[in-house]
Structures are given as C-alpha cells and as structure tokens.
Design a protein around this nucleic acid. Structure first.
Length: 460
RNA sequence: GGCGCUAUAGCCAAGUGGUAAGGCACGAGUCUGCAAAACUCUGAUCCCCGGUUCAAAUCCGGGUGGCGCCUCCA
C-alpha cells in the first residue's frame, strides 16, 4: 500500500519512496537536556514514534538517529539569549555535564513510559565534537565561511538560495528585523559555526581555532552525516525548527556536500494549553509526573495525542485528558471482550478493517481516522478472537498496550476491612450500612464497584 | 514590519466540491437493592459577508477572531 507524507520542503503530501527500498534512514531533532520535558516537548517524540511504527507496519527496517543536545550554544557574550545549560547549572549548583546527564536520563525515562521506541542511535552532542570539527573544516575548505576574531560564521549569501523550507528571504528579514544583530555578521541570516570559548566557559574543546564550542546547528548536520550519510530519507522536528534550525542545517549541508540532507522534512505542530502556549508564568506547564499526580497514566497522554493530526495544533484541556482516560479503559475492555469471544467472523471482514486502518495511517499518519476504525472493530457486536488479534496488530502502531490490564494497586488493609464489613452487610441485605461503608471507603479515596464477581475497588 | 498556521456540536477533533468520522461529557434507557462500571440510543449545516458552481464546511475575494515563529522553546 502506498505511503504518503506531507513534506515541508514542497508543502505537499507526497508519496514516500525511500532511497533504499529496505531500510529507511531518519534523523530526529532531540531534546536539549537542561530541564524536565513537558508534555508539549513530549508530543514531538510521540510523533517521532508514530512515524517509526507506521514505517515498520509497512515493512521497513529503520536506521533512526536522534540527538541529545547536552551542550549550551550561547553565540557570544553580546547575544541576549541565555545559555540554557549554564543557566540550569547555576540554578542547581552543578556543572553543565552533570545537568545534562541527569536530565537526559529523566528524558529517556519519560519516553520509555510513553512507550516511545528508542531510535537505533541516540547521539550526544558532546561525544561528537570531533566530527563537528571535521565538518566545519570542510565547509571552510569549500569556501562558505568567514571569521571574526572569535567566531567562524556561515556565509548564507554564498548559497544559491537560503530559506528553502520556510520561504524566507534575506532582504525581507532585514526590513522587518526587530532584533539587534551581531555586528560581525555580513548577512542577517548568517550564523555561527564554531566559537572561541570565553575564559570562564566550562564546555569547550581544543580545536584548530583554539578552545571552542560548536554553533547550535552544527551537531545535527554532523551527527546526521556520521550515521546516515550526506543524503537520507526523513528529517523530523518541531514546527519551530523550520525557520532557523533546519534552514541552517540545510545551509551547512549544502556547504559541506552540496546536498539538502533529507528528502522529506516532517514537522510536528505545538501542543497548546487552554488555547495558548504553555508557560511557567501561566502555571500550565505540565510534566508526565504532573499528569500522574492527577491520576493520568502516561499512556493516557499517548491516547490523547491520537485525537488529532500531528500537523495541527492540539489543545490540551483536562476535559479532553479525561476523555482519553475513559476511552483507553473502554478500549481495553473492548479488546478483552473480543479476546474472550468464541464467535467466528469471515476473513473478508477482518481484511476490510485492516485495509481501512492501513489506509488511514499511510495517509500522513492520520491517527484520528485510524482510531475511528479501531472503534468500529471494538464495537462490532460479534465477539471474536480474530478481532482481538486484529486489534493487537493495530496496537503495534498505537502502542497503547491494549492487552495489558491496568496495574492493580495494593489495597491498604484498612480498606480491605471495610470491604469485608460491607460484604457481610450486603449478604444481610443491610443496604443502609452497605451504603455508609461505601461512602466511608470513598472518603478514603477508593471507589467501590459491585459486579457479579464481587466487589472491586479502584483508586480515585 | 515579515513569515506561517488556524476558525467544524459543551470539550478533543476527522473531513478539502455532492447535503457533516470518531472519542469524551450531557440526557434517556438496559442492568443493579441503590449507585458505580458496562452496554444501547440521542446532538452540529461547519466564524461573518460576497462570489464561482447544478452542487461548498470544502474553491476564490473581503472581513473578524485565535495561535505560533522571526534569539538555541517540540
């Protein structure tokens, strides 16, 4: 079945044809590890995972690289930006390497919890300084640079065109510039490749240009080149990467090899919260731990993301989060019923569903439509193991672990005693006492559900 | 100042020319001692104005609103 992706480079949905018919090579821009990832960050990696799983569903093997940015990228003291790594180090009274180590591990734990498959290669910037240096040298050799006293810049005017991804044009930018630019730059879109570190800079490496650290776009180009070559299939990232970071990656690659590094560029839009961007000042910046505290499993957040297309913004609300929680529980319930089913269905029906699902995911990862097919299967009144098997196949893409029962939390003895009392009361048909006990259990944070098999409790 | 995205039921959202997928919530019902859970049923003519067309949420023009980016934040 044909596979189509929206390509930012052409602004069109295109058929996906890999360079190598068996193995798809992908590069994904990963996190800067200076703090815990929030759920907006994590959406990007859910998208990345979604892409992986859809490609695998289509029978492709993957060679997928994701970077971990564990080095700060302050261009110079004159710049107004903050070096996030250094800022975090100061805040926590650690050195930047410790910060990177800690938050990288936290990030990896988060993506594991979300059932995000780890890319085949996770590349840390600080472990690839040598290849970055080589990369810069080649760009210099090819004549695409100039230098000031302490910085080597990429000269974007040397390119036939800068701004192929975002339709940007250097002159237009000058006209509307709101920001003071580095006076050493010849063109407004030029950027730093290699920078001499100030005395007190902790992260710096010996190089042909003295003690330096890399410019902030360099790592992706260099590491992508190292593992995937100068021409690979897909490059992914957040929508915010389009105008600067990915333009500059393309510029660097053109300076290095003359090629745009990837054929397909895919970008995931932001998650908004209550209609706007998340921010600390609005107190709506959530992490997975925050969700957990409110009673939402990481996979519920995963489920929530399937409600919209990756190319559109998705608006986070607690109401929608709850919708995902209930829906996921019902999905599991529905799977279980099919799995316990003894009826038979014709293969043609199974195939029809499978085809619809496959079509949806192959249409630029249209998960909302794919989910509607899942619900069709779930709600089919015929209960058959064939349906259960089909759902498991779908779950290789969904990654919702629909066949796993929710973990039963340990019930405290106190609650167990109350339940026992209530059981006796119910046997005696003492409904008043039974209801009182139920209220009491509820006050202690547990919901009682009576079923044919007896009482069950669930944490609120 | 520039670039881009977007406006569909209470919420999250599919749908890009032929009279609106799906999930959640609400309401009704089945079940239950009563609840809860589960299951079934139920809801919108698609921001406004104008145009093209036999036919538009879907194309074009003009409004209005929301959001993002132009400093390394996915």
């Amino acid at each position: 079945m044909k596979l189509h992706f929206f390509n930012t480079l052409t602004r069109e949905k295109e058929e996906f044809i890999p360079i190598d018919s068996k193995e798809v090579r992908i590069y994904s821009c990963g996190p800067t590890v200076y703090y815990f990832a929030h759920i907006g960050n994590l959406r990007a990696y859910l998208f990345m995972d979604n892409l992986r799983r859809v490609l695998e569903y289509n029978g492709y093997k993957l060679k997928h690289v994701m970077n971990i940015t564990d080095v700060g990228h302050l261009v110079s003291d004159a710049d107004e930006g903050e070096d996030k790594m250094l800022k975090a180090a100061k805040r926590e009274n650690k050195d930047p390497f410790q910060i990177a180590e800690f938050y990288m591990n936290a990030f990896l734990k988060d993506i594991d919890k979300l059932n995000i498959q780890r890319p085949e290669i996770i590349a840390r910037a600080t472990e690839h300084i040598d290849i970055m240096e080589e990369y810069v040298k080649k760009i210099i050799e090819n004549g695409y640079t100039y230098q000031s006293e302490d910085t080597i810049y990429f000269d974007t005017s040397k390119l036939d065109k800068y701004g192929v991804l975002s339709n940007r044009n250097i002159e237009e930018q000058k006209a509307g510039a709101r920001v003071e630019f580095d006076e050493n730059k010849k063109n407004i879109s030029d950027f730093a490749l290699w920078i001499k570190a100030p005395e007190n800079h902790i992260m710096k490496w010996d190089s042909f240009f003295g003690k330096c650290y890399p410019g902030w776009h360099l790592e992706c180009s260099a590491m992508g080149y190292k593992y995937l070559g100068d021409h690979f299939d897909i490059h992914t990232g957040g929508i915010d990467h389009i105008p600067i970071h990915h333009e500059n990656e393309i510029a660097q690659s053109k300076g290095f090899s003359g090629k745009i590094p990837a054929n397909y560029w895919m970008h995931v839009d932001f998650l908004t919260v209550d209609g706007g961007k998340m921010s600390k000042s609005l107190n709506n910046l959530y992490t997975l731990s925050d969700l957990k505290e409110k009673g939402y499993d990481p996979l519920v957040y995963r489920m929530f993301n399937f409600g919209s297309n990756y190319r559109n913004k998705i608006n986070f609300t607690w109401e929608a989060m709850n919708a995902a929680k209930v829906a996921l529980a019902r999905l599991k319930e529905g799977y279980k019923k099919h799995n316990e089913g003894i009826e038979d269905v014709e293969d043609s029906i199974i195939n029809e569903y499978e085809e619809k699902f496959h079509e949806a995911i192959n249409d630029d990862l249209n998960m909302p439509v794919a989910m509607s097919v899942v619900w069709d299967v779930i709600k089919n009144p015929i209960k058959s193991k064939k349906f259960a098997k089909l759902l498991l196949k779908f779950d290789t893409v969904l990654g919702l672990e629909i066949d796993k029962e929710n973990e039963k939390e340990e019930i405290p003895d106190e609650i167990k005693e109350l339940l026992e009392k209530r059981k006796v009361a119910r046997e005696n048909k003492d409904w008043n006492l039974s209801d009182t006990l139920r209220d009491e259990i509820k006050e202690k944070g547990y919901i009682v559900k009576d079923s044919k098999d007896g009482m069950q409790v669930e944490k609120l």
